[in-house]
Design a protein around this nucleic acid. Structure first.
Length: 282
DNA sequence: CCCTGCCTGCTG
DNA sequence: CAGCAGGCAGGG
């Protein structure tokens, strides 16, 4: 499920709840969610450690320990993190529980079990999680039209597929690739090598503006987050094309169309994104 | 490069 | 019941 705006929201909600807490005990009910090292080592190395901060890179979350060790996790499609009181009713498909000091628990649940955890010890290099393969953060100053054009300008592949490449720009998934392309008025199936310099520049600007907008729309308190079981994303009402196939385009009224690009469904407006138009953010 | 597998649950 | 779901790694 979660793409960059959701992962950023989760990071912001959880960080104040977790920072300063000691991990007293870890219960692993499904060892397959621990990708590195073994579940046993994961548990033994982390027990007794103190959490110092959280960070995000692309769609990955990192929980930093005072010791310099760090837990890296990826929620993939259905992963969910909750900080709860110990007696709080457990979610179905809970695979991992960190019992924390101050009578709290950090729980990981994941229906489809695609989510993964890694423990990287201080001084150990992380060749496991995939973070080392990630490309630029969308909010980096260096993300500009020239950067995108350098990577995709000669490619014949659909621009939507390009936006999903985590090794170029990290954090964009299927939802926000559609939203970004709609806002930039570029058709998702347009071959990358047909975009001009102005469109690359527009796309770069739109990526960061749209992601920032959806992070802002996702703003939520810790209490509200727990009430929604970590599954309610407040920005969904603001999505303009994703999930709206067959409905009128919010800009021009033409019917939004669902297509399949690289085995992923894509929604776009054939009129607004059909012909080249000027960009909102330029 | 495209394709499949990984999983469960929901929808038509 | 088949088909689909917002992700990614690995294999051909």
């Amino acid at each position: 499920m979660p793409e960059l705006p959701e992962v950023e929201m989760i990071k912001r909600v959880l960080e104040p709840q977790l920072t300063g807490n000691t991990i007293d005990q870890i219960t692993i009910t499904n060892a397959s969610v621990i990708a590195h090292p073994t579940a046993d080592k994961f548990r033994r190395h982390l027990c007794g450690q103190v959490i110092s901060s959280l960070s995000r890179r692309g769609k990955f979350l990192m929980i930093h320990m005072k010791s310099g060790d760090r837990v890296i996790l990826h929620l993939r499609m259905t992963g969910c993190l909750l900080v709860t009181p110990p007696e709080y009713p457990p979610e179905k498909h809970t695979h991992l529980i960190f019992q924390l000091s101050a009578g709290k628990e950090l729980r990981f649940s994941d229906t489809r079990r695609f989510g993964r955890f890694w423990l990287i010890q201080k001084g150990e290099s992380d060749s496991y999680s995939g973070i080392h393969k990630l490309g630029m953060e969308p909010f980096s100053e260096s993300l500009n039209g020239a950067y995108l054009e350098k990577h995709f300008g000669k490619s014949r592949k659909a621009i939507k597929k390009c936006l999903l490449e985590q090794n170029v720009v990290a954090g964009i998934g299927n939802i926000y690739s559609d939203e970004i392309l709609f806002k930039a008025k570029i058709h998702p199936s347009a071959p990358a090598n047909t975009l001009n310099a102005e469109e690359w520049q527009c796309l770069a600007a739109t990526i960061s503006k749209q992601l920032a907008y959806f992070i802002e729309k996702n703003s939520i308190t810790a209490e509200e987050y727990l009430e929604g079981k970590g599954k309610e994303y407040r920005n969904t009402p603001f999505l303009r094309v994703y999930g709206h196939a067959g409905e009128p385009c919010p800009d021009c009224g033409e019917m939004l169309v669902r297509t399949v690009i690289g085995n992923r469904s894509s929604v776009s407006c054939p009129r607004c994104q059909g012909i080249r138009r000027c960009c909102t953010y330029l």
